[in-house]
Design a protein around this nucleic acid. Sequence first.
RNA 1: GGUCGGUUUACCGAGUGGCUAGGUAGCGGUCUGCAAAACCGUUUACGGCGGUUCGAAUCCGCCACCGACCUCCA
Length: 489
Amino acid sequence: MDNNFTIYNSLSRKKELFKPLHAPFVGMYVCGPTVYSHPHLGHARPAVTFDMLFRYLTYLEYKVRYVRNITDVGHLENDADEGEDKIEKKARLEHLEPMEVVQKYLNSFEKNMQDLNTLHPSIEPRASGHIIEQIELVKEILEKGYAYEVNGSVYFDVLKYSKKYDYGKLSGRVLEDLQANTRNLEGQDEKKNPFDFALWKKATPEHLMRWPSPWSVGFPGWHLECSAMSTKYLGDVFDIHGGGMDLLFPHHECEIAQSTAAKGKAPVRYWVHNNMITIDGQKMARSLGNFITLDQLFKGDHPLLQQAYTPMTIRFFLLQAHYRSTVDFSNEALQAAEKGLQKLMKAGETLKKLKPSLTSTADIPALWENCHEAMDDDLNSPILLSHLFEGVKYINSANDGTEELTAADIESLKKLFNAFVFDILGLRDEASAGNDEKLTDDLMEIIINLRQDAKNKKEWGTSDKIRDELKSAGIILKDLKDGADWSKE
RNA sequence: GGUCGGUUUACCGAGUGGCUAGGUAGCGGUCUGCAAAACCGUUUACGGCGGUUCGAAUCCGCCACCGACCUCCA
């Protein structure tokens, strides 16, 4: 299976030609959410990015197994909560079972992912369902001599590991620097070195989520689940591991160390990281008051939002930026995206009604070529969109009669739209989605005919009234040379 | 403090040496009873200072500013 698909590998810091280990099969693991609160804007970025990657690999006819974990055992907090488990903290506040909290926010996540039109991963394993695998992995690392037990907790021995392997190769960290810069945190006294990390932690008495293990009743360290689950479902070595750039260190670095220590080889061939988002140029944080959940965004229910933005507007907006760039959310930018998306979708509708000519004045094969090139170049969705808008121009011009397209080219354009707009970018026409289209079409035809009668009699008051009232019902009427066209707002 | 990344026209956002993406907004025009849409044309650029080069937004150096990570996080 030949392709020209290149992807930026964080490990080599270069774009590399993508060659799967066992073509046509591709294994892809992406760090999923910790389900302890409603999904927010930040969750949308990796979801859309890796959905697009999944979709493109599938388009290239690879058989992809896409695994995205659900972290539901909670991670330790190091702030004022003194290491209290996040999920437990929330559970006490809301007087719910920890798993009840998990379920609630998991449902919320699943719903938002559907809103954004992301495809389900092949497997969505939960950390709580893989405690045994995690314990086995800790045993393996202990057997290989890269971990040590202290008071029922097990820590990874980074210094020993670094004598044989390269700790820091992904994030560019140097061990000496880490040693010099690591803060003094609570509960670090058990470790040999401050940069060691927990594989298993003994539970304190108030810790609710706990499982038996050979070392103590406790819980797994926070890097362990990804190593255990990726190995279980994708093998010791697999093709792609994705996640946000913020996870590069320490999370992914530790994953590499854990798997390498256990299996003797690096687990991942291509590390892919999406960049972060900002809001009006600032990092999103609760303390800055610009923390926006996806539901708030879809409903316009936040002081910073001038209006609601549909899931597809968000998706389109994210795709207008390259996944490795930061992307800045603002009302102005989102409104621009909304208009752009409408233009694209409208052209898709116009395409269906286009009348063929005997010759073509546009080069559709070149357009295909350009679209492929854009995606092959490290998923350059903004460039792809710019080419698609070239297609939009052809379509609208052909509709206006200033450009000509043969029946074959029109057919080719339809295929191109289906492939790139819908299958690969995963956009969805929200306006035309749904309900009783036939009936609506018939009704609109009647109304338009009545209005035409009024216009023929030059009863402009009547014709304008019809148009205005349709507008207040959310229907836009446009007069053409002969007849009229309509669309939903 | 350390490591890494960024600073592009009104806004968003591509672009790694010459060919000035794209979307949105603005302006002018075509069309039109009016309006909208569409189409055509068009305005405002590459943080600062130096260097390399016939030629730099693009390469190098310094400075300024912004951000990420180093600590739970997408």
